Each structure stands twice: as C-alpha cells, then as structure tokens.
Amino acid sequence: MQTRDTGELIPSAPSASLQSYPKSKTKAPPETPPTGPHDYNWYYETAPPTPPNKTHANTFFDKHGKQATLLRSIAHFRKLPETDVPEVAFIGRSNVGKSSLLNAVMGCNTKALLARTSSTPGFTKTMNLYGIAPDPGVRIKQESLSGSGGPGREKIVGPGGLVIVDMPGYGSGSLSAWGVEIMKYVQSRKALRRVFVLLDAEHGVKDKDRSILASLRLAGVSHQVILSKMDKLYIPKANEIKEFGKGRKLKSKGTVTGLRAKMRALLPDIKPPVGGGALGEILACSSEVLVEGKRLGIEDVRFAVLKAVGMEGEERKGFTESKKKKKKAVVEAKM
C-alpha cells in the first residue's frame, strides 16, 4: 500500500502472476561415493562425524543412559512442564521400529524405563519424555510461587543433559486424530531442537509420512530423516555379525550403493524445490543387528542427537580443558 499526502491509502500494483516466475527444480546434491562397507550414511550437506565424535557420543549415552529417567507420559500439550533442558523428538509410523531404536540409542533397561517394544502396532499412545544427564540427572522440579500456599509450577531441570521425546506412532487412524496435540508440541515447544522422522528402509516413504514432512516444513521445524530396519536391505561385510539379544549369526546382505539409491529416491519428499527441507543428511540403522559388537548405525544416530542439542563436543571440551590445566600446573611447578 502507498499513501497520498492526505493519508488516503492507495492500492499497490498487482503482483505478477506466479506462472510468470520460472519453476524451480529439485537437483540431486553431489554425492561422494562410499569409501567402504560402513560408509552407508549420506551426508550431502553436512560433515560426517569423526571417530572421536562417535566415541564421544557412545561414551555419553553408555555412561549416562543408565541414569535415564522417565519424566512424564502425557497426552495433551498443555500438561507439559516448563523446561530448561533441550529436547529432541522421534516420530514415525506405527511398527517402524521407533521404540527399539530409542532403547538402543539410550542404552537403558527397556522393560523398566524406556519406550517399550510391543507386538501391537501403535503401542505408544502418549508423549513420553526421557531425561539423560550426568548426576544428578534430569528431573522435574517443583517451583514454589512467592506468597502462595499452592504447590507452584513444574520445571524440567538437568544441567548438561537432554530430553528425548517418544511420540505416538501414526498408524491406521487419521492424521488429524493422531496429530493435534503432537503438532501443538512440534510447533510451540521452544526447547525442541530437532524432530527425527523414522522411515522404514525397506518400504520407504508413505502418504502419511509425506503429510508429516510437509507439516514440519510449513511449521519451520528442524527435522531429519532416519531409515530404520536397514538390515532388511543392507548388512555390511564383517568378521562377526549377530542378531542382537539372541546371538544367532547373520550374513552380510545387499550393497551400500543399493542403500544409497534408496536414500536418493527420498529427495523429492524430504528436500522439495520450494521451502526448507530436512537436514542434509540421511542416516540408516538397525537396532536388531550387531556388527563387530556394535548395533548397526546407532553411534551415528547418537551423535546426531547430541549435535542437535549442541552437546556434540562437551566431553571432548572438558578433556581438553583438563589437559590444559594439568599442563599449566606442570609449568608452574617448574618455575
């Protein structure tokens, strides 16, 4: 709008038709060929984690995952406590392997604490919040209100920690029935740093997955795709391959190039020509297969979680600072 000297509003000239603008196309990002059987993740816009990065991620979760706390199971966004702790959320279709993946990432007693694997699709019906942090861990603190005799408000606290939110699986029901409270969370939760969207490696993206991805894009929510159950397509060659929890020996399967091709096929859905897409890396994993004693791809997911909340270098930073202090003490002792 423009104004005359009298202050009267004058309509602006109409905008050019959208058809007059050139149509953009989705271009496949450049791809570095895999360097070996374990180079199956696709980092097409980000740098892959280094061995020290992976060691740090494994150390954090192996050390503090045992102290993980089930903070709250809720069905309505308004019942979420306030928080000072960064959060990440995992969502996916029912029976996509989300609960098993969370158990593997967090490394806890799955029966006593974490998201439970069920043979019934859609087992998780609430948003489950799990806190992981060094002592004293993540907890819900009751803050008393000044001059009030009431219980006060609740707040999640946990220095140096994070919260993982396990979202209900979207199954055979409608997305509207599943997602009202979920979308309130992903659109309004200020502590949320990233949503990890699990897709079945074998079956790929479905219509409901596309709807979820579109909703996250429109809401401007940071999100990333993880292919679960990658053992259905690919198991790298190794001296020792076993089924987790059973010890049964398995054989290598498929090719890394075949798995990468599956990832490239996702691009039109996760990185459209208009609007922000998913983070520029696609991870693949399997919580059911041990390769050389490690669950397949889990350490990469662990690092992605820490990176999302800005904790990818905390222990390394502490190690460096400690080393500097020791060196300084030695120098001062010689003076």
Score class of each variant (00 low, 15 high):
Gln2Asp: 12
Gln2Tyr: 09
Arg4Pro: 02
Asp5Thr: 14
Ile10Phe: 08
Ile10Gly: 01
Pro11Asn: 03
Pro22Trp: 07
Lys23Asp: 08
Pro29Gln: 04
Pro34Lys: 07
Thr35Glu: 14
Thr35Tyr: 01
Thr35His: 01
Gly36Gln: 06
Asn41Phe: 00
Thr46Pro: 00
Pro51Ala: 13
Asn53Ser: 12
His56Pro: 03
His56Ala: 13
Ala57Asn: 10
Ala57Glu: 01
Thr59Tyr: 10
Gly65Glu: 03
Gln67Val: 00
Gln67Lys: 12
Leu71Met: 05
Leu71Thr: 11
Arg72Ile: 11
Arg72Cys: 07
Leu80Thr: 02
Thr83Ile: 05
Pro86Phe: 01
Val88Pro: 01
Arg93Thr: 10
Leu101Thr: 14
Cys108Asn: 13
Asn109Val: 07
Leu113His: 06
Thr117Pro: 00
Ser118Arg: 02
Pro121Gln: 02
Thr124Glu: 13
Pro134Gly: 02
Arg139Tyr: 13
Ile140Ala: 07
Glu143Lys: 03
Gly152Ala: 08
Glu154Met: 05
Gly161Leu: 03
Val165Tyr: 01
Asp166Ile: 04
Met167Gly: 02
Glu181Gly: 14
Val186Trp: 14
Lys190His: 03
Arg193Phe: 01
Arg194Ile: 06
Val195Cys: 15
Ala201Trp: 05
Lys206Pro: 00
Asp207Pro: 00
Arg217Tyr: 02
Leu218Glu: 15
Ala219Pro: 11
Gly220His: 08
Ser222Pro: 06
Met230Asn: 10
Lys232Ala: 10
Tyr234Cys: 07
Ile241Lys: 13
Phe244Asn: 14
Lys253Arg: 11
Gly254Met: 04
Arg260Asp: 07
Pro268Leu: 05
Pro268Asn: 09
Pro272Ala: 07
Pro272Trp: 06
Pro273Trp: 07
Ala278Pro: 03
Leu279Cys: 03
Arg295Lys: 11
Leu296Phe: 04
Gly297Asn: 02
Glu299Gln: 05
Ala304Ser: 15
Lys307Pro: 00
Lys307His: 10
Met311Lys: 15
Arg316Val: 12
Arg316Asp: 07
Arg316Met: 14
Glu321Ala: 15
Lys323Thr: 13
Lys326Ile: 14
Lys326Thr: 12
Val331Ala: 08
